[in-house]
């Protein structure tokens, strides 16, 4: 069962647009897949290498702007920028790493956060290049969601398999050894600076690609959207920790849950409360529904607090714990 689960999941994902023909759900799935890519990237640098980055948006935004500028300044199809966005993000990652890797732990986190903000300011102020807050606007290539879906799926699958391959290689061992004990790793002759840089570049490449995909798919970006500390950097962390830090399928689970939870709250439990209010005709429930819908970020915050307290290794990491609580299953299954 355990061995076939990924393949089963893949088959379901490939068939998804054929089974569910409604644009709304396809759109949500594209977002999930995009977050899988970002989460996988964050997981490499933070989950495996132990360098908790608060600056993912710097890479995401760079990728998105690369695609946008390709289209507006060079008149090249923004699809070419899918790869270029990843490379541009890596170009940002070098100075980023050079500055931040001198620092450890919490300091590293702060430095990445600060650089994230610097990038956002640059994109805002440099109006001649980026258009400032007016943003960049391109016309999407496809009307249908299906091509975007498969591109996102391909990217997500490549990201997960790629990360798995890297983690199975020599690099992977070095990354984990840096996470576990940097000084010990160094004394064993591992060039920690180099491997942290490699790890960061993998993360940047993946996140940058996701950014380019976002530009292609959404057709509009501005600095507040793609360099957002809250909506990108912290969301990436949440995808990582909710899913499971340092696990291959953690970002997949995390992305799905975060997008679903967000939509769940936004629509008032998918119309659950509205239905309940209509069934009972109660004014109190209508009011309650309104409050629930308003509280979706609060729901997020509480989810984070609870997950860190109760499931410090995320859903995949602490899967046994979860199955132990559920009345169904009874703890026989283990981590996927």
């Amino acid at each position: 069962m355990k061995r076939f689960a990924p393949f089963l999941l893949l088959v379901i994902l490939i068939l998804f647009p054929l089974l569910v023909r409604d644009d709304y759900h396809q759109h949500l799935m594209i977002l999930v897949l995009m977050w899988v890519v970002i989460g996988a990237g964050w997981n490499v640098i933070a989950g495996y290498t132990g360098q908790v980055s608060f600056g993912d948006a710097a890479f995401f935004g760079t990728g998105a702007y690369t695609a946008g500028l390709f289209a507006t300044k060079l008149s090249i199809s923004p699809w070419w920028a899918m790869a270029a966005g990843g490379v541009a993000a890596m170009a940002v990652a070098f100075p980023f790493g050079w500055i931040c890797f001198r620092l450890r732990g919490a300091y590293f986190a702060l430095a990445t956060l600060a650089l994230n903000e610097v990038m956002r300011h640059i994109a805002t102020i440099w109006e001649d290049l980026t258009g400032g807050m007016v943003g960049i606007l391109i016309i999407q290539t496809f009307v249908s969601k299906v091509p975007y879906y498969y591109i996102a799926l391909a990217l997500a699958v490549a990201a997960v398999i790629g990360v798995q391959a890297v983690m199975g290689s020599k690099w992977g061992y070095y990354f984990v050894s840096i996470r576990e004990d940097q000084d010990a790793a160094e004394s064993l002759g591992i060039d920690t600076h180099l491997y942290k840089m490699i790890s960061l570049n993998i993360a940047a490449f993946l996140t940058g690609m996701a950014g380019s995909l976002y530009m292609n798919y959404m057709g509009f970006i501005d600095p507040e959207v793609v360099f957002s500390l809250h909506d990108i950097s912290i969301m990436a962390i949440l995808v990582g920790i909710v899913g499971g830090v340092g696990t291959v399928y953690g970002p997949v689970v995390g992305a799905f849950i975060m997008v679903a939870v967000h939509e769940f709250f936004r629509t008032g439990f998918f119309g659950f409360f509205k239905g309940l209010a209509a069934l009972t005709g109660s004014q109190a429930i209508t009011t309650l529904a309104k409050y629930v819908m308003q509280a979706h970020v609060l729901g997020f915050g509480i989810l984070v607090v609870v997950v860190i307290l109760v499931l410090p290794n995320g859903i995949v990491g602490d899967w046994k714990k979860i199955t132990g609580w559920l009345p169904l299953g009874g703890g026989r299954r283990s981590a996927a």
């Binding site: 409604d22 644009d23 709304y24 759109h27 976002y214 959404m218 509009f220 936004r266 970020v297």
Partner: peptide
């Protein structure tokens, strides 16, 4: 009435839902 939370991707979720569902 659908909430966009002020974010473009969520706004897009909202309008897809309005049109498709």
């Amino acid at each position: 009435i659908e909430d966009t939370t002020g974010k473009p991707d969520v706004g897009r979720s909202a309008i897809e839902k309005l049109i498709a569902r």
